[in-house]
Amino acid sequence: MAEVNPYLTFLDNCEEAFNFYKSVFNREFLTLMHFGDNPAEYQPPANESHKVMHVALPIGKNTILMGSDTPNGTGIVTVGNNFSVAIQAESEEEASHVFNGLSAGGQITMPLGKTFWAESFGMFTDKFGINWIVNFAPNT
C-alpha cells in the first residue's frame, strides 16, 4: 500500500478550512483544484465552479490531509461524519483488491473506474459505516 491519508468533505467551505489548516501547520498545498478547473465535459453548474474539487496539504512526515467540497444535491455530507480514509494504491490490481474487499457488504457511492485524474477511483461506505476512497494514479 502506497499511502493512507485522512480525507475531509465539506458542504461549501473547504478552501476556508484548508487555508486555516495551512496556517496552523505552516505548510503549502501540494494541490488545490476547483471544480471550475475540470475539463470542459466535466464542468459543474456556474454557481459551483468555485468549490474545491481536491486539495492536498502535507501535515507530517508521511501524512497528507486531503479534502473537497461536495456538489449541491449529492447528499453525501453529514457534519460529524464528513471524513474518509483515502487509499493511494500502488497498482490497478491493488486498487481493485482493496476496493472489492473493503466494500463487500457495504454501500458503493462511486464504482471503481477510470476518471480524468486516475486509472482507478472509487468511493464507498463499508459494512461498519466507515467511508473509504480508493485511488490509483500512476503518475502522481
Rank of each mutant, 00 (worst) to 15 (best):
F20L: 13
D126Q: 01
T78N: 15
C14G: 08
D126I: 06
L102T: 03
S103R: 04
A56N: 00
D69F: 08
V79Y: 11
S91M: 09
E92C: 06
V85G: 01
G73P: 13
S84E: 12
T63Y: 02
N13E: 09
K114P: 00
L8N: 09
T63D: 01
K127N: 14
F136D: 00
M110N: 05
N81H: 13
N135Q: 13
N26H: 11
E16L: 04
A40I: 05
A104G: 06
Q88C: 00
H97M: 11
L102R: 08
S84T: 08
Y42P: 00
F116I: 01
W132F: 13
P71Q: 12
L11T: 14
N135F: 03
S120H: 14
V79Q: 13
L30Q: 14
G113Y: 00
P39Y: 01
G67Q: 10
G113N: 05
F18N: 01
D37P: 02
S49D: 11
N13T: 12
A86W: 07
F35L: 00
I59P: 11
F20Y: 14
G73E: 12
E93D: 12
R27F: 05
N38I: 00
P111A: 09
A86T: 03
F116Y: 13
F99N: 08
G75F: 03
Q107A: 14
F25I: 10
